[in-house]
Simulated assay, not measured.
Amino acid sequence: MDWMAWTWPTAIFFAVIATLLITFTVLAIKFPETPRTGILRIETTRGDRLFITLLGSAFINLAWLGIVGAHQPYALIVCLAYAVTVFRWV
């Protein structure tokens, strides 16, 4: 990892994102999905909901960092609750 001066948390973050993308690709192939309409009144697939979750989690973490400034693992709990909400109702 010296070639890019990555830290282990950064490498883990990108590994998790890559794993999610691979998992969702396999799920889409094995179990084709039909778009559904949630509370946003737009048709979304699993991939759309994953994108909404990742984008929202980025904003949650940035807001947490700006407002609280510390205890970032608690932001992860908020992001997980947000992800459950998005995948359940959006």
Rank of each mutant, 00 (worst) to 15 (best):
G69Q: 12
D2T: 09
S57P: 06
F87S: 03
A70M: 09
W8L: 03
W64T: 01
A15S: 15
A83D: 07
A18W: 02
I42T: 12
I52P: 01
I77L: 10
I60C: 03
D48V: 01
T37N: 05
L54W: 04
M4I: 05
A18Y: 02
P73A: 09
T10V: 07
L20S: 10
F14S: 09
K30A: 14
I60E: 01
L76Q: 07
L76D: 08
E33H: 04
A28Q: 11
A75P: 02
V90E: 02
L54S: 04
C79Y: 05
F87G: 02
T34H: 01
G66Y: 13
G56S: 10
Q72W: 00
G47K: 06
W3A: 00
W89V: 13
A75E: 09
A75K: 02
A28G: 06
T37K: 13
T25I: 01
T10P: 01
L80I: 08
G38Y: 15
I29K: 13
P35T: 07
A70K: 12
L20K: 09
E33K: 07
V86W: 03
R46V: 05
T44W: 12
M4V: 10
V78Q: 06
Y74N: 01
S57R: 01
T7H: 08
R49P: 06
L20Q: 13
I12K: 00
H71Q: 06
Y82D: 00
A75I: 05
A70S: 15
R36H: 04
T45W: 03
L76W: 00
D48E: 02
L21A: 15
F51N: 00
E33M: 02
L21Y: 13
H71L: 06
Y82R: 02
D48H: 12
T19R: 07
C79A: 11
W64A: 01
L62V: 10
P9A: 11
I52K: 11
W89E: 08
L65Y: 15
I12L: 13
Q72M: 14
R46T: 08
T44M: 05
I12H: 01
A63F: 04
D48Q: 07
P32A: 03
F31Q: 14
N61K: 09
V90S: 05
C79P: 04
R88Y: 15
T34F: 00
V78I: 11
F13D: 06
F87M: 11
I22Q: 14
A11K: 05
R46K: 07
N61Q: 07
I42F: 03
L55H: 05
I17F: 15
A81Q: 06
L76I: 02
Y74M: 03
Y74D: 03
Y74I: 08
Q72P: 01
Q72Y: 00
I60R: 06
G66S: 12
I12C: 08
L76S: 14
L76T: 07
W6Q: 10
I39H: 04
F59Y: 10
W89L: 14
V68L: 11
A18P: 09
L80R: 03
T7A: 05
A5W: 02
I42L: 03
I77D: 01
W8P: 01
I12T: 14
P73I: 02
W64N: 02
A75G: 10
R49H: 10
T45E: 00
W89Q: 12
I29Y: 15
A83C: 10
